[in-house]
Simulated scan of single mutants.
Amino acid sequence: MEASMQSPFRDAPKSLNIFRIRFPIGAIASIGHRISGVLLLFGLPVLALVLDRSLASEAAFESQREAVDTPWSGGAAARPDMGRRASRARRRAQAGHEYRH
């Protein structure tokens, strides 16, 4: 076979194991930027919907606050003592006690 007829991809890697390929810093930044853009694309409308619903009434606000306080959402997981403080404050408010810091 002539030299001009050989495939230019003759020395290309045979396996495309993405974890073995070393990406340049620009590629890593680009991939991270695209991922964050997709997260914002789907996350901001959800956050806007939650804000809209929480501003509708006091009951809707309490409903949204309780949804955020669940352990799986990260509300209580971000600061473990906040769940106890919030529930203690709620019990005091329901009992008619004044909440003090």
Rank of each mutant, 00 (worst) to 15 (best):
P45N: 00
F61C: 11
S54P: 03
A67C: 07
S7N: 15
I35M: 11
K14C: 08
G32L: 13
R100W: 07
V50P: 00
A60T: 09
L44G: 00
H97K: 08
I31H: 04
I28C: 06
D69V: 05
R65M: 13
V50E: 00
S30N: 08
I18V: 13
I35Q: 07
W72Y: 12
G26P: 04
E58H: 04
M5L: 07
P80S: 07
A60H: 12
G74N: 09
P71I: 14
A95C: 02
A56S: 11
A77K: 14
R65I: 09
S57M: 03
M1H: 07
P71V: 12
A76K: 06
F61N: 08
S57K: 04
A3H: 05
G32S: 12
A56L: 05
R10F: 02
A93M: 12
Q64L: 02
R84P: 09
P45G: 00
S63R: 13
A76S: 15
L47G: 03
A95T: 04
F61E: 06
R22T: 15
R84E: 14
R92S: 12
M5A: 10
L16A: 07
F42V: 15
I31G: 05
V68H: 07
A3E: 12
A67H: 11
S36R: 13
I31Y: 06
F23N: 07
A3I: 10
I25G: 09
R85I: 11
I25C: 08
R10G: 05
V38K: 04
R92Q: 15
A86G: 02
R85S: 11
V38I: 15
S63Y: 09
L41S: 03
I25E: 14
V38P: 01
A12C: 06
F9V: 03
A12M: 09
A93D: 01
A95L: 07
Q94M: 12
V50R: 01
L49I: 04
R85A: 12
L49T: 02
I35H: 02
A27V: 15
V68N: 06
R91M: 10
D52E: 00
H101K: 11
L16K: 07
R20E: 15
P80M: 05
P80C: 07
L16H: 10
D69K: 12
